[in-house]
């Protein structure tokens, strides 16, 4: 039985930064925030919370709102590049403890940024199928507020905190997963990195050019593998880097009417931005949904989700 997506939950902290007020301090404008960045609010975790606290709340929501049973989990995979403490032990081990999961549940971290969710879907699906697992959870939690310099206008107006949990199962999943396309332009790996000062550095131009040039090709590769045209896709869910990059890519793909920007109330939540949109999808969202994540590395990952016929 192939593994697919059964349910997705998203945790968004209550606290936030008012990005329009922040823009004035950072010598930007309300017009730029609304029309280009697109994010009026940037979610912020409580200062006492660590990465696995956000992750736990996302998994708890999967349990309380989507009927997910903690005792059924056979594997838990956490995507983050901002782990608890300094990354040892792996944060998924800490999360496993906080969730009080069975000792037979396999757990590990994946160190990826904005392409992490789509990479993670492929990894956990393959891991579950090769080990005969029926239920697993893919968690994303990468609170960039831990590494943002609030006076750096290249990064401070973009990122928000959040976490997601995706239930993967062999039992009546809603979405089948595949085909995939992956890649990296490692010649530009330093365009997004943590500097010696401990803060995130971003070369916005390099990241923008990378996304504009690479992502449409990656999406076309998945369309070719799937024998589909962009016209047969119902939704294109792109990593929510900013309103401007989403609109730029949609224009290049010719998919403006089906490529939403939905991060205006939360910010760029890195690997959580795609599952955030999946958690909100109505039942009649369509049959074919493309996901594409891109960023740190500079890496990309694209895949097709196909609604299961027996669920229609």
């Amino acid at each position: 039985m192939s593994i697919g997506i059964k349910a997705v939950s998203m945790y968004q902290p209550d606290d936030y930064v008012d990005n329009i007020s922040q823009a004035k301090v950072l010598d930007s404008t309300e017009d730029f925030i609304i029309n280009k960045i697109g994010m009026k609010r940037l979610s912020r975790k409580d200062k006492l919370d660590d990465t696995t606290d956000l992750a736990k709340r996302a998994v708890d929501l999967l349990s309380t709102k989507k009927g997910f049973s903690m005792q059924d989990i056979e594997c838990l995979v956490l995507v983050t590049q901002n782990p608890d403490s300094k990354g040892m032990p792996h944060s998924s081990a800490i999360l496993h403890s906080k969730l009080a999961l069975n000792s037979t549940c396999a757990v590990f971290d994946i160190s990826l940024g904005c392409s992490g969710y789509v990479h993670g879907l492929s990894i956990i699906k393959s891991f579950m199928e090769s080990n005969g697992f029926d239920n697993g959870v893919l968690v994303t939690a990468d609170p960039y507020s831990k590494i943002i310099n609030s006076s750096d206008r290249d990064t401070a107006m973009l990122f928000g905190d959040g976490a997601s949990a995706t239930w993967l199962s062999s039992d009546s999943p809603i979405w089948n997963i595949g085909s995939f396309d992956f890649g990296i332009d490692s010649s530009q790996y330093d365009a997004l990195h943590i500097g010696e000062d401990g803060y995130l550095f971003m070369n916005g131009r390099t990241v923008f050019n990378f996304a504009a040039m690479r992502v449409p090709k990656s999406i076309n590769n998945v369309l070719l593998k799937s024998n589909l045209s962009i016209g047969e896709i119902d939704l294109v869910l792109l990593h929510q880097g900013s309103k401007y990059i989403v609109e730029t890519l949609a224009k290049r793909l010719g998919s403006e009417e089906k490529t939403p920007f939905r991060a205006g109330h939360i910010g760029n939540t890195v690997s959580s931005s795609i599952p955030m949109m999946l958690s909100d999808l109505p039942v009649d969202a369509g049959e074919n949904v493309l996901l594409s994540g891109f960023g740190v590395g500079l890496s990309w990952a694209t895949c097709l989700l196909k609604k299961r016929r027996n669920e229609l």
């Binding site: 730029f32 280009k36 923008f208 050019n209 504009a212 040039m213 401007y244 730029t248």
Partner: peptide, 15 residues
């Protein structure tokens, strides 16, 4: 034209 428009113009010229 803002900084993002500028980046788009340069990329379009290059392409």
């Amino acid at each position: 034209l803002d900084s993002l428009d500028h980046l788009t113009i340069l990329l379009s010229l290059e392409e």
